Structures are given as structure tokens and as C-alpha cells.
Computed example of a mutant assay.
Amino acid sequence: MAEGKGSLLHVPPRRPRHSTGALATPARTVIAILAAVAILLAGTGTAQAEPTPAELEQQIDEMWNQLEPTIEQYNQVHTQLKENQAKAAALQQQLQPLQAQVDAAMGKIGEIAARQYKVGRVTTMQVLLSGATPTDMLDQLAMVNAIARNEHAQIAGVAAARDKLAGDKQTLDGLIAQQTVQDADLAAKKTQIEAKVAELQKLRQQAYGSSGATGTLKPVACPVDYLGGAGGTAAKKACELIGKPYVWGATGPKSYDCSGLTLAAWAAAGVTLRHYTKWQWEDAKAVARADLRPGDLVFFYSDLHHVGLYVGGGWMVHAPTSGDYVRMAKLDGRPIAGYRRPG
């Protein structure tokens, strides 16, 4: 063993090549294979598969569920703002004649006060010169004072009404100022919303073609179950609107959003609904799923940001999302929050 070990120590070690020439054949082979794989992947695009229509539909639903609450909030604030502006204008019209009455009454009081002063001095002089009794003078002055008190009472009533209306208008003006800021903030988001809507439309075109429609808008007879009365009329109207495009904030006649569609359908039945999903929830009474009948409203999601109109047989008509159209859809498989019946 000692000799063998000693002989190994005398063998000169191999030195690595420092030549600038080609690398060893195995190394060249590995690099060539890796390069070929990279080129193949880049050329074929198999590194990332194209999303399926179902996956795109899920993306659209997720994006829209973020957008629709903002749209409904805009509907609420903008409607309230317009209503309060109209109220403020009406109060202003009521204030103008009241102020005129106050001014006119104040003028009369001034005249009475001057007359009282003059009558008082004349009566005193008459008492001294003509022998009129003090009782006559006091009676005349009392009558003038009574007239003045009556005029003062009248103006006090008018002034109180004026002051109340002025106070109401001041409160309303403050609310309008606040809502104007909110309305402007939501309007500023319009550009962002429209950009998102454009993205949704592109996704739909990729998944379903340039029409943006998904399947058949009316796969069965609509309404499925027809009943008379206001609900039946509303259901029939909703069915007639199938095919109209979705446009947020729209109440017809060319386009609709979800609460705009239900508003228009029930308007045909002579029932007024407000253009906001939560208001429509408040304005209608609760019904059980087992008691649903055509015309009933079906609300979705915990914040009630979407609504459809039941047409029987487990089907509803609704305005789904931007880029889509008023269409029929099954209730099952959706996050239902509850059912309500207007009227």
C-alpha cells in the first residue's frame, strides 16, 4: 500500500485546458438542447394556455360585481341630488311671496305707528280745547292700539312661516352641497368605469364573438307562467324588453341597467319604483321562494346590488352586465338575497 500510494504521489496532476477553443462535446450538447427547447416554447406559445369561455365568464362576473355597486350608488346619489334640488327650488318660490307679505305688513305697521302718534297728539289737543273727556281720548287710542296689535300678529305669523322655510332651505342647501360633492366624485369615476366596461366587452368578444351575446336571449316562452294583474303585466313588459342592451344608469326606452329594467316593467303596470336596488327592496314586501309569481323581484348578493324580475318556471328576466343584453336566466346557481313583491 505504501508503494502504491507513493507512486500515485509522483503522477503529475491533470491541468484544465485554458484553450479558447470549443467546449467539450457533452457541454455543447446540453446547451444546444436547452436552446432548442426555449425556441420551441417561444414559437408555439404553449407556455400559457388561452383561457376558456367559462374562465372568461368568471372573470367578467368578478369584474362586474365590483362595478355594479358603484353604479347603483351613483343612481342613488344622483336621484337624491335631483330631488333635493327640486325641493330647494320649490322652497325658494314659497319664500318670495312670504317675504313680500312681511315687507307689506311692516309697511302697514309703520303707517299705523305714525297715525297713532298723530292721533294721540290731536286727541290730546282736542281734549284740552274742545272739552272732550279723557275717556273719549283713551277709547280712540285703544282702538288704534288694537289695530296695531292685529297687524303685528298677522306679520308675526307670516314671518314665522318665512323663517321656518328659510331654515328648511338652509338645511337642504347643506345636504345638496354634500351630495354635489358625492355626485361629482362618482361622475369622476365614470372614466374608470367606462374603461372597465371596455375591458369587459373585449373579454366577451373573445369568448362569444363580436356580438357580445351569450347563447339564446329567450330560450323558452316568456313569461313562462302568465298571470293577470299588475305582476303579470310587469312580467310581460320585461319579456318585451329582451334584447335591449345593458347601459348603466339607463331606464329605457333604448337601454337599461338592472334596476332600470324592473322600474320600467312595473311602470307598465302603473306601479312606481325608484331607480336603486335597495330602494326597490324597501318599497316592496317580502315573499317566500315557494310563493313566487311572475312580476316578483329577485335580489342578489348581500348588498342587494343586482335585481331581476321573475317570469315563472324558475326563470327571470334581467339586465346582466355591460356588453350584454336584457335576457332570460335561471334563478338556480346564483347568490340570491331574497324575493320581494311591489304594489
Rank of each mutant, 00 (worst) to 15 (best):
M1L: 14
G6C: 10
L8T: 09
H10G: 10
P12I: 15
S19E: 10
A27W: 03
V30G: 13
V30S: 15
I31A: 15
I31Q: 15
V37W: 12
L40I: 08
Q48C: 10
A49F: 12
A54Y: 00
I60T: 05
W64Q: 00
N65I: 10
E72T: 05
Q73M: 13
N75S: 15
T79D: 14
K82L: 13
E83L: 11
Q93M: 05
P97L: 05
D103M: 10
I109H: 04
E111H: 04
A113T: 09
V122F: 13
T124A: 15
M125R: 08
L141H: 08
A142D: 14
A148K: 06
H152K: 11
H152M: 14
A156V: 14
A159K: 11
A160N: 09
K169L: 13
T171A: 15
L172W: 00
D173N: 06
G174R: 09
D185Q: 15
A188Q: 08
K190W: 01
K190C: 03
T191A: 14
I193H: 07
A195R: 06
L203A: 07
R204Y: 09
R204W: 02
S210F: 12
A213R: 09
K218R: 13
P219I: 01
V220C: 10
V224N: 15
G231T: 01
G232R: 02
K244Y: 06
V247W: 04
T251F: 00
G252L: 02
K254H: 11
S255Q: 03
S259C: 03
A264F: 06
G270S: 03
G270C: 08
V271E: 12
R274P: 00
T277C: 07
K278V: 00
W279T: 01
V287T: 02
R289C: 10
R293Y: 05
F299L: 08
H306C: 09
V311I: 15
M316H: 01
H318R: 02
T321W: 01
Y325F: 10
Y325V: 07
G333A: 03
I336A: 03
Y339D: 07
Y339E: 00
